[in-house]
Design a protein around this nucleic acid. Structure first.
Lengths: 126, 126
DNA sequence: CAGAATCCGTTTAGATACTG
DNA sequence: CAGTATCTAAACGGATTCTG
């Protein structure tokens, strides 16, 4: 039996930088958008295809959030016909690796997750 | 310039197992709770200390969610004085590594994130 | 094409008080 | 100690409509 350290008195404070991650990527679309930009810049309408459940509003909102965090850049071409391109910044790219790790984990374990979910019964008294 | 693959027609569908991750851990407390259980079982009240911004309701809700996913186990001792203990299941433990990766990323880059956040200005017209 | 604006229902979170 | 119950405020998400 190992000696257990007491828990820090305010983990929320202490892990703020990391709890910022779920804060920023925990929303419904951010992670998916990042993955859409994995192999090159994409245009607004191009992003809507694989995420066809997203409304333009939410996509804009998501993109703005990612821009604000410095993860995605937006380039409006002089020629409007060329559209607007979104791309990962180097910072955004650096997030890919840990994100893949999480995705791999999920891919490996999602059956277990599902099983657990179905096997679960609310609560047996006593 | 590399050849860009067309994006899959429904990434939401395709990444469902992985988008399940933000779904399940994207909430405000799950990740933090998991980290609180890193080095051993903890009791309900013990968990409230480092997460003192959490209300009992939210903590219960979070723990139930993690239980339902098979990531956390709950043990009510026969002797009520011993309280109720929550612990990571093996599945829960297996999540630690990818989670650390993400935390490390955040720890490394949160200054950049903050800077980007402050430097950001809503949108320059034209 | 790339959004912005508005409306509105749903979900989520927090405060507070109470219980076995 | 380990929650539950209730209520309210705020955030989120989607549908729809409109514009440079």
């Amino acid at each position: 039996m190992t000696v257990r350290q007491p828990l820090p008195s305010d983990l929320f404070e202490e892990l703020c930088p990391s709890s910022m991650v779920p804060f920023r990527f925990g929303d419904k679309w951010s992670a998916l958008v990042i993955r859409c930009l994995e192999d090159g810049p994409r245009r607004f309408s191009e992003l809507r295809v694989p995420l066809h459940r997203v409304t333009p509003k939410m996509l804009t909102q998501t993109l703005r959030g990612l821009e604000r965090s410095g993860l995605v850049s937006r380039t409006a071409h002089a020629d409007p016909a060329l559209g607007v391109e979104y791309a990962l910044t180097p910072l955004g790219r650096s997030l890919l690796k840990p994100m893949w790790a999480l995705c791999d984990w999920a891919a490996e374990h999602w059956e277990e997750l599902l099983e657990a979910h179905e096997a679960y019964e609310p609560r047996r008294l006593a």
